[in-house]
Amino acid sequence: MSQRVTRSSRLSQGAAVLGLLVLILLAAAPWWAGRADMRLMGEIFLYLSLATLWNLLAGYAGLVSVGQQAYVGLGGYALFALTILAGVPALWAIPLAGLLGALVAVPVAALIFRLRGAYFAIGTWVIAEVFRLGAAQVSALGGGSGTSLPADVVRAMASGRDAREALAYWLALGVAMAVIGLAFAILRSRLGLALMALRDNELAARSLGINIWRTKFIVYVATAGLTTLIGALIFVQKLRISPDAGFSVNDWTAFVIFIVVIGGIGTLEGPIIGTLVFFALRETMADMGSVYLIALGVVAIVVMLRAPAGIWGLIRARTGAELFPISHRVRGTTTKETADGKKA
């Protein structure tokens, strides 16, 4: 009797093919979609990226941050500072912002990792507030009222408005794919296995050799850097920043948490579904003002009561489905299964 370990399933292979087709279709959007639709899709990709990162942080590493707007705002401000004050081209400023975010996250992690549970969450929020107040002090970038990206910086990005819109769209799509791909690669790796283990049982995790602090630190710094990079991308599209917009807890954390919780925290599929639900609600009800926010609240409450693991959590519990093949399956564990395996 011999066993072997497999990871993909027919479903995940099918999902990969379908995903590739959708990706090709999306990459061609500048040829088939209007300007407004492309903007909306770009925003969807950026929210999908933020949600995937927050999910990695809270859903896998157990670091429930309500202060990720600190990095979105930092990214926006880094973009404006690098282009306006240092004359760096906008396309270079975006990855530099990501690097800066990761660097800033190192001392921040050393500080807030001393806090546990709810205190950790509050700590992340306090840090974000400090960043916001700090940004308001930078008079070269408009202080409390913010500033706009100068026209020559914007023009230097691409020749003509259509080319610039297409570029911004592709950047958003590319970053979303890179973030999902990275999250998938992490979760399939030793690091991902360690994350899932410590999420399940910290005592057993450390007794089996997992350095919990280091594992969480890596995830925190990586997600912070990428969140900062996304922040720079967001404000390349918005062309204007202010402390309140850059460090908005509503826009960059509350909505993101909504997306992840609705879709299914602790699954890679969850944020994708959650993003689609969120934007479907927003686009159909955006004109209704506060009714829209009430609807978001109602959806959140219903999902939390009916499906605490989110929409994908419910589907997975019922069917065992997995679109991103992360888990391991041992084939040939019993004689019966070996027989089945031979038939297949």
């Binding site: 899932m196 283990a197 999420r199 399940d200 049982n201 005592l203 057993a204 995790a205 007794s207 888990s327």
Partner: peptide
Amino acid sequence: PQPFGGMT
């Protein structure tokens, strides 16, 4: 026993 309950 301290299993990782959600994992196989």
